[in-house]
Computed example of a mutant assay.
Amino acid sequence: MDEITLTRIRALQPELSAIRRDIHAHPEMGMEEVRTSALVAEKLRAWGFDVAEGIGKYGVVASLKGNRPGQRAIGLRCDMDALAIEEATGLPHASTNKGVMHACGHDGHTAMLLGAARHLKEHPDFGGTVHFIFQPAEEGRGGARAMIADGLFDRFPVDAVYGLHNDPKMPFGTFASRPGPAMAAGDRWVVTFRGTGGHGGAAPHLATDVAVLQAQFVLAMQTIVARNIAAVDAAVISVGAIHGGSMASTNVMPSEMVIGGTARSYTEAVRDTMERRMRELATGLAASFGCSAEVTYDRRGTAVVNHAEQTEVALAAAADLAGADKVDGNPPLITGGEDFSLMLQARPGAFMFMGIGAGGATSEGLHTPTYDFNDDAIPNGVGYWVSVVRKELGGLAE
């Protein structure tokens, strides 16, 4: 990327950092982004955009047509929601909303896409249309699905759509993406075992013991990945919660135990196998213990599967910005999930990771109480978006 463009982008950092910290101080959970979406819309209008609000409840879209001939259209998407985590950074811009914080950097994502919108509005040297998509509720509350169901790509047609996420574990200024599966489908499951309960001291032999049953089930689930999934396929099943009985009555055998967790996979075939075997193990073991089982398997999203052509564009855009030596085109698979996967099912596109290093309070990584987005990385994100637009829709010669 030419030095003139980089200088213009870097000049936006103080303003974008202030916006980012304001959003960080006022985090909102998914489908509750009242203030955040209003702030985004306000900034875009102040910079001369026509803005559409309320798409999928709190989604915001602004569009920009370049000053060169061209009919292609692309979407650039960021997420705006926070997480239910109590912040422990002690920073001046720390969360003022108790129990909620921007622990995944969506405040930074929003600021970077706003910066790209502003820069391109002032320098629309491309042919075609860019739709800037600000999505609510990425963190498991269905924001992408809601926007698509509300006609996102009917109202704002695109030939390709791109997403970007920060990674504090990657070195500052680096980028990584890969064609094909890149991130896992994230499912949530809950199994409820029911038995008679009983007196754990006087008459355990007269009870059906759901406590021992759940222990056997948790162990048996480990055989799903080990023995039902091919060794060349990747899958994860983890237990995140076990509830039953009362610490106030530890001599009472509970009549109900509830186990919940997550499952991750990259193909629908593996996903189907995990759900089927989980149900079989739960019902089979329950029957052998004289108990019953109820299984809920919630498919929250699909695997992020990048399209080859758009991944090539994304990697080239990153290389033009950072240099080819800072771009990894074959990073390891990530078992984390992303609902951008649904947008990739609807339209061709690619999802990119950007290293922000361990600046500020980011050293413990995403989804931790001490995370904070590294503001020094904001120009890199803006520059990446501008570079994607140039690769897709043309622009100044590099």
Rank of each mutant, 00 (worst) to 15 (best):
H367M: 04
A308K: 13
M354F: 06
E338F: 09
L39Q: 15
Q345E: 15
D107F: 03
M343E: 14
V239M: 10
N166A: 13
Q135A: 00
A377T: 07
A350I: 09
S246K: 10
D159K: 10
A94E: 02
T96N: 12
N374C: 04
P179F: 04
T89L: 02
I4C: 00
P332D: 11
A111R: 08
M112L: 12
S177G: 02
A62K: 03
G70W: 01
K169V: 04
G66C: 15
K98N: 05
R72H: 06
V389E: 07
I378R: 06
H199R: 04
N251R: 11
P92K: 03
L12W: 04
A184E: 01
D376T: 14
K169G: 14
W47C: 05
E398M: 11
G56I: 01
T89K: 02
S17Y: 01
V161F: 03
F175V: 04
Q214S: 14
F353E: 10
M247A: 11
P379A: 06
G323A: 09
A314K: 04
Q310E: 13
F175S: 05
E256N: 07
K65P: 03
P331L: 12
K121R: 10
A361C: 11
V305K: 13
L152Y: 12
S63N: 09
A234R: 10
D209M: 10
G54E: 06
H102C: 01
G301I: 08
L366G: 13
D320K: 14
N306M: 06
A220N: 03
D187Y: 01
M112H: 08
A397M: 14
I237M: 09
I19T: 15
A397D: 15
M147W: 03
R277T: 06
M29L: 15
L206V: 08
R20T: 08
H119L: 11
E280D: 13
V270I: 09
H24V: 05
Y266W: 09
N97P: 00
Y58C: 02
T5Q: 12
F172S: 06
A88H: 02
E364W: 05
A314I: 04
G90L: 01
R72N: 11
V386E: 09
L213G: 05
M257V: 14
P179G: 04
A117T: 11
F156H: 15
E312M: 07
E53H: 11
F156R: 15
A318E: 05
G180A: 03
N228Q: 15
M29S: 13
T273M: 00
L219Y: 14
F217E: 05
I334Y: 15
R8P: 00
P181I: 05
C104M: 02
A88R: 02
Q216S: 13
A220S: 14
V130C: 07
M147T: 07
A149S: 12
N228C: 13
L83D: 02
R118Y: 13
T129S: 12
L91R: 01
D375G: 00
S246E: 10
K98H: 14
H205S: 13
L342E: 15
H307P: 04
A73N: 02
K98Y: 05
S246I: 00
K121I: 01
L16V: 05
E398A: 14
A84I: 10
E256M: 14
S387Q: 12
G200I: 06
E398V: 14
V270K: 08
E280C: 00
L152F: 04
T110M: 09
W47A: 09
T362C: 15
K121Y: 03
R264F: 07
H199I: 07
T362K: 12
G90W: 02
G244P: 05
I356T: 15
E280R: 08
L393T: 03
